[in-house]
């Protein structure tokens, strides 16, 4: 058993009663606490190994690995950039093609419209001309027909008048026994025909 007594008696006095075993362990611990190497101090062998491996790594990285990796990365990035630029150029070309095509399309469309308009105009002109012609021809035909009709009517009337006059003359000759004056008969017939037929 351990009895650990600490008393204040003017100055610090420590009395320790311990068995053999505890004394040993206490002594070793206190020795470790005072004479053990500082845990912060660097150990030469760790320093050497760490420095050596770092420097080897650094030299290899600097001289071989990094330049090669960087070269590959740059090459690939440049490739990608070139591809992108190419794609951009292609896109631009396609865009300008589209613009040109659209301009051509507009031109063609305008031309077509103009042509259609022109054709329509010509057609209209032709139609009006034709229609005017036809109307004129119709009119002429109608006039001719009307003239023919009136002529025919006049002729028919004359014939009728002549027939009626001759009949009347004959009749009057038969009735009176003397041949009437032709002009008087004709006048009378004419009068009768104009007033008669209705009355």
């Amino acid at each position: 058993m351990i009895v650990h007594v600490t008393t204040w008696h003017g100055e610090l006095v420590q009395v320790r009663v311990a068995t053999e075993e505890q004394t040993d362990s206490a002594a070793s611990t206190s020795e470790a606490a005072t004479s053990a190497p500082n845990p912060i101090a660097p150990e030469p062998k760790e320093l050497l190994w760490g420095a050596g491996s770092f420097l080897v790594f650094l030299v290899l990285m600097r001289l071989y690995m990094f330049p090669k990796i960087k070269k590959g990365m740059d090459a690939r990035y440049n490739g990608i950039r070139e591809d992108l630029e190419q794609a951009d150029a292609t896109r631009l070309a396609a865009k300008s093609d589209v613009v040109a095509y659209e301009a051509a399309l507009v031109g063609v469309r305008a031309e077509a419209a103009a042509r259609v308009d022109k054709a329509r105009q010509t057609l209209d002109q032709e139609r009006t001309a034709l229609m005017a012609d036809a109307t004129a021809r119709n009119g002429a035909k109608r006039q001719a027909a009307e003239a023919e009709i009136s002529a025919a009517r006049v002729a028919v009337r004359d014939q009728v008048a002549a027939a009626v006059a001759s009949v009347t003359e004959r009749t009057a000759q038969l009735a009176v026994g003397k041949k009437p004056d032709a002009s008087v008969v004709a006048q009378a017939v004419q009068q009768a025909m104009q007033t008669g037929g209705r009355s």
């Binding site: 491996s53 770092f54 090669k68 590959g72």
Partner: peptide, 22 residues
Amino acid sequence: NKVGLIAVASALIGIFVFMSAA
């Protein structure tokens, strides 16, 4: 010791990774 071994192993792993990448 172990610390030195870890340092050496770190450098070796780094070298291995970057070497195989290169």
